[in-house]
């Protein structure tokens, strides 16, 4: 329970950071970290299948985001950057309030979730899950990451030569 709480708090913090940071690249990293944390949480809660899905989805999504970030960003002068950060922080002033409100609403309305949890012994081990049942998925995920890396490499290098 202790571990879970720590993970949850981390999750909230990191995702907040991802939302609030003015740098797209940092936001992307934040998203990746959020996703990884979520995977761990799901695994902790006894849903390895969901955890695996989360991981693979994030593999795809993160790569997409990385690629788009690299393709779109260009470096701002420092002054401009500071100015943008100021204006950005202003925009998030009401965020804590919203969070508190959301929490209150969630506590008052008891959501009628009656999800069936998978039998505990059905698929217990993530490794079994990954390698025996969803092997082809894993291969696909690796490919997605590879494509992402490829894209970053190509676009970054292209940037460098363009700058020369």
């Amino acid at each position: 329970m202790m571990l879970l709480s720590v993970l949850l708090i981390l999750l909230v913090l990191i995702s907040l950071w991802a939302v609030m940071t003015p740098l797209l690249l940092r936001a992307a990293i934040g998203l990746a970290a959020t996703s990884a944390l979520l995977t761990m949480i799901m695994y902790q809660l006894g849903a390895p299948l969901a955890a695996v899905f989360e991981l693979s989805v994030c593999a795809g999504l993160i790569s997409v985001v990385f690629v788009s970030v690299v393709s779109l960003t260009h470096r701002l002068p420092l002054k401009e950057f500071m100015k943008r950060r100021q204006s950005r922080i202003k925009r998030f002033i009401f965020l804590p309030l919203l969070l508190v409100a959301a929490l209150a609403i969630m506590l008052t309305i008891k959501l009628p979730f009656q999800l069936q949890l998978p039998a505990a012994d059905k698929i217990s081990d993530v490794r079994v899950m990954l390698w025996n049942i969803r092997r082809i998925d894993l291969f696909g995920q690796i490919m997605a990451l590879l494509a992402g890396v490829y894209g970053v490499l190509i676009l970054f290098r292209g940037r460098k030569t363009d700058g020369d």
Partner: peptide
């Protein structure tokens, strides 16, 4: 499998984004 289908669609799409931007 519908999830595997999704993954491979994603792989294809990712490689394609970069291909489109190839000439920068």
């Amino acid at each position: 499998d519908i999830f595997t289908l999704y993954i491979f669609i994603e792989v294809t799409a990712l490689a394609t984004f970069i291909l489109i931007m190839l000439n920068r």
